[in-house]
Design a protein around this nucleic acid. Structure first.
Lengths: 147, 147
DNA sequence: TTAAGCTAGATGACATGTCAAGCAGATCTG
DNA sequence: CAGATCTGCTTGACATGTCATCTAGCTTAA
């Protein structure tokens, strides 16, 4: 049984700390700016990206790499707040579409500039170009191992 | 307003994906092996690290970089499951100690080998030494910007 | 064409996390 | 030394996420 050495432990603890702090601060900023969570933001971004402004539930879940039931619950909550709307699917009687509402579009347009500025300031501006390249490689290696 | 360029967007999305997948898999593995969550594991590790096996609530929260109320709720849940116990603090009438129980110690001893093996396999074994160094630097830079 | 099985989604139960408020025991100050 | 304030911790309300299960609409094969 091989444990983590000193350096590995330090890196690992800092990894856990950094990821949780970064997520917490993004959540707080989005909440303050536009009453959104990071999860809301991700859903809205994806919907904004497609011309029709609507996607099938399964497709959206796959795009976001979310579990389907998580998305279903989340859509319910977002619908209650008027950020998205559920629509029937003509093709498939079982299907459902999640559609961006005007209010949802307004919310993400309000939130996006400060959110992007925060990501830029706290991540990309803090790193050299070479570090970003290495980070990309690291993410790729770890991700491919996870599948 | 400067948005993220192609490469930055790709890295950022992969960052969000990788961090969430890694956390999800760690949680699943810990749950399967020992009925623990990653949060439980972190609490138990910290308590195991101190000789007395008990810490003041505030101290533990600070060590973990958790909000105090999160820890309080979490300790309640862990106490209900017998993993830790709350104790009175002799020094300070307001204070409370969180103490590792036998059952808590048994749980972490059961969980640790596979958990460490998973972290090693999915992270450290997937990276070169130079990548780990760069990761360390990246974590440091971003963290210092977050405070 | 119909019964078996598959697929899309929703839901209930429950664990987790955040924020704001509450409470009781320290501490400080006039 | 008595009120004001601060501190350590808990609690309630509520948002979020997971797992298991349910339902209804498709699909397929005898």
């Amino acid at each position: 049984m091989r444990w983590l050495d000193e350096r590995e432990q330090r890196v690992w603890r800092r990894y856990l700390l950094m990821t949780s702090q970064l997520a917490a601060q993004m959540n707080r900023q989005l909440a303050a700016d536009a009453g959104l969570s990071l999860a809301d933001y991700e859903v809205l971004v994806r919907l904004t990206d497609v011309p029709a402004g609507r996607l099938r539930v399964t497709r959206l879940a796959r795009d976001l790499s979310w579990e389907q039931s998580r998305l279903s619950h989340h859509v319910s909550r977002m619908a209650r707040r008027g950020l998205v709307a559920r629509e029937e699917c003509a093709d498939d009687g079982r299907g459902a579409l999640v559609a961006l509402t005007e209010q949802g579009r307004a919310a993400i347009e309000r939130a996006a500039p400060a959110h992007v500025a925060f990501v830029r300031a706290s991540v990309f501006d803090a790193l050299t170009d070479a570090q970003v390249d290495t980070l990309d490689a690291i993410l790729g290696s770890v991700l491919s191992g996870l599948r």
